[in-house]
Design a protein around this nucleic acid. Structure first.
Lengths: 288, 288
DNA sequence: TGCTAATGGATCATTTATGAAATTAAGTGT
DNA sequence: ACACTTAATTTCATAAATGATCCATTAGCA
């Protein structure tokens, strides 16, 4: 019943005050608190590249009397009712704010897992897809729309001919009709997958368009020839999933595409900046 | 012509290797690079709560021969014709894919710094703002549109009466006219801030609307009564900044709002699910 | 031009952090 | 109950980090 703060919380609270070595270990734990439960202090220290002494000190700093005590406490916490998803919200109603530390912990895990899971050659292939597409179709329905919008807003800084689906209030099939074999479709399928997505993906494959498919679910079924699935993790702590890792991966891909395109991309960026500047001036020539 | 990397890049690169004091200063600079140009080393050190010596050492670590040299270099970069954010890219052109590991590290740093920087009472206040607003105006221009869209798509799952600005092809002032004192505006100001944003924020304040302002820059100027600025870090490793941390913070806020609203939110979610299901069935009753 | 104030850079004494090794505690098997 | 093993904790010498202080240089000003 004492309900001491969970580990991620404590890590956050003391993060600033930690010296380098301890921070190294803290970073590790932020990625994976379970490690404390499973591993020994020695193993932990080794994994983080610090000495056992440092590990001991960290747990003291966090307010535990010792590593052992911390481990015990955490094991107990772990054993307690495993609240999950909507259920718990119903259960612990009444304005209980979810733990920030938990959130961070989950996000970091997602991020690390997502990024580490990527195969270098696949990323390279993805970048090439994005670069060589004649037209690029960015697809995101429902909750995926924001993600798609983000992707497009970054990609358009670096190359031209990018279409968005769905577009404004326009009917999808009409827009989609102009897709061709030399195009590429970048489709987002995080969380709830809609009918529309399945339909359009199916149509695209039928049309022979190559596909770059970002999902937190299973890979594309018949992903043959040129199509590619990138998996991301989006598990959230409370109520909703979080597209953070997807955003991050997409940000990376855009940067990578920029680097890939090289001079062309840079020039495009410059042009965009110039126009921005002009417009800024034109709109309000009075501002300081 | 050597086109040395800009300050934030360097800061991130060396961040892990920095001892506590230098890190404190680095954090300050990541929030406000301009400080180097404007302030003296002494002032900087004082602001960060470290000694001059530490400041000097930091700049040495970053690869500059001295603080002065760094300041000079940065002033030049700043003064250059176009905002040369892309300079470095030009330097290492030619399809070099940016380092995945670096990206990940930077993202995690941003995340941790962003989350850790939030004050619990402010987050609580933010949630209350979101909860009590009669109407909620979600504002995001330019690159911030995706973010705003994401925010709205999550928030709408949990409460009603959320407006989006800008909306479709509609003129902003016309929409905005109906704002009232009992409303709240959630405004995103990551990266490039547009005229429109400044205008609308100014108008909102004038109208007495409370503001929740998410930014990677300086806080809102006259943030009196009820308005609130949440700072996020968005420093990217290559070419573009990354809104990852902002997305994550927003995801948290939405979850927190859900918890805050409690039963009401859960019921709303259920209703939404039900409708989804109905529609799904109705649209394609044949699918497995 | 010469004086003053301020700023940056370097030095060094002090504090703090760190790992190797010694010590203690907790098991394990006999 | 007794070695014996293994892991945690403490100790301590060393290394690193830090800030106060001093000196040199520059900028501002009369």
């Amino acid at each position: 019943m004492p309900a001491d703060p969970p580990l991620p919380q404590r890590l956050l609270e003391h993060y600033n005050a930690m010296p380098r070595g301890e921070r190294r270990l803290a970073d590790l734990l932020l990625e994976d608190v379970r490690a404390v439960i499973d591993s020994s202090a020695t193993a932990l220290a080794t994994r983080a590249g610090v000495s056992k002494a440092t590990a001991a000190r960290l747990f003291k700093r966090l307010g535990y009397p010792s590593f052992k005590a911390a481990q015990r406490a955490l094991r107990e916490q772990q054993a307690e009712p495993a609240p999950d998803r909507y259920g718990p919200t119903l259960g612990r109603l009444g304005g209980e704010r979810p733990e920030l530390g938990q959130h961070l912990q989950a996000e970091v895990r997602n991020l690390v897992a997502t990024i580490e899971q990527q195969r270098s050659d696949e990323l390279g292939q993805a970048v090439r897809l994005l670069a060589r597409a004649q037209k690029l179709w960015v697809v995101g329905f429902g909750d995926n729309y924001s993600l798609a919008h983000f992707a497009r807003s970054q990609l358009i800084k670096v190359r031209s001919d990018i279409r968005m689906i769905p577009l404004g209030g326009f009917s999808v099939p009409e827009e989609f009709a102009s897709i061709s074999e030399s195009d590429v479709m970048l489709a987002f399928a995080i969380g709830r997958r809609t009918r529309s997505l399945r339909n359009i993906v199916a149509s695209a494959m039928q049309a022979g368009t190559r596909l770059l498919y970002l999902t937190d679910g299973p890979a594309l079924a018949r992903s043959g020839e040129g199509s590619l699935t990138l998996k991301v993790r989006s598990t959230g702590t409370a109520m909703f999933d979080s597209p953070t890792a997807a955003v991050s991966l997409m940000a990376y891909l855009c940067a990578a595409l920029g680097a890939h395109l090289g001079e062309a991309a840079v020039q495009r960026l410059r042009r965009i900046d110039a126009i921005h500047e002009d417009w800024g001036e034109l709109a309000h020539p009075l501002e300081a």
